[in-house]
Amino acid sequence: MTDARQPLLKVRDLKVTFGKGSHAVSAVAGVSFDVYEGETLGLVGESGCGKSTTGKALMRIVEPSSGSIELDGADLAGLKKGGRQLRNIRTRMQMIFQDPISSLNPRRRVKDIVAEPLDCWKTVTGHDRDVLVSDLLSKVGIDPAVYGNRYARQFSGGQCQRISIARSLAMRPKLLICDEMVSALDVSVQAQILNLLEDLKAEYGLTLLFIAHDLAVVKNVSDRVAVMYLGKICEIGPADALYEAPAHPYTKFLLGAALEADPDSPMNAQVLEGEPPSPMNPPSGCRFRTRCPNATEKCASEEPQPQEVAPGHQVSCHYPLSITRK
């Protein structure tokens, strides 16, 4: 299904470790995935599992300790920190942050914020720049004539997120990494932003890596979904298939804990006990084994490798749940 398409982003065995020695936190412990051109890959997982760190490592905001990142065939992981080549990549890859208000400088005007990438790169200047900025602002639903000269601090969270989106699109990037971009917003505003994102994705031909902890939000925007647990991807597959028939026990629990706004939805029969172990000393073998009801000795001794349970649907578990399609 996905084979025919070219991966735009290819991540292999990405690792990020914070700190050294006995205090080392292996926040991302060997993550591999592809993002195909034009698709949205959702990345879900609980707090602290390393989603943001993965996103930041791709952007090289934090330094990966090993692994390869290929964007359109060009390797990013090897580029020198602060170097020109890395800077050049910035035009093709952008990121939107979780906290809409703190990701905009409160003392700058909206117009200037959106123009920031243009001013950095001097690709478009003068009158053309102003036209482009106005165009971007109206695309995200903010009237440039009325609000362009306002300071960022005068806007609400939803509006700030719109401005962030406009800024990230200025250089027409191919890949957009959205880190929890709607988690700080109210449902009614969240829906507006999600719809806007879908529209802009179509118009700009964007490829998205959509990081979030909210399973429902991820389901709504993603073509494929990757589930992370304690620094590793435990399951990745087409969104609908993965949600309908999770193959990894963790995914199943995660989905079971998601609350549907429906009084008739089944009360979660089984709740995952305990809490994730610390990434400072992760369990041996399968990282989920300490909480997994199906764990055996093999899980403790041997790390499960990704295996394909259906086309494009991979799971890292010794005993994948049987997939029975409805």
Partner: peptide, 17 residues
Amino acid sequence: TKDYVIAAKVQGAKDRR
């Protein structure tokens, strides 16, 4: 440490800027 500083870096802004 504010996100907007990271955001500016991600836009490709140089240190001076």
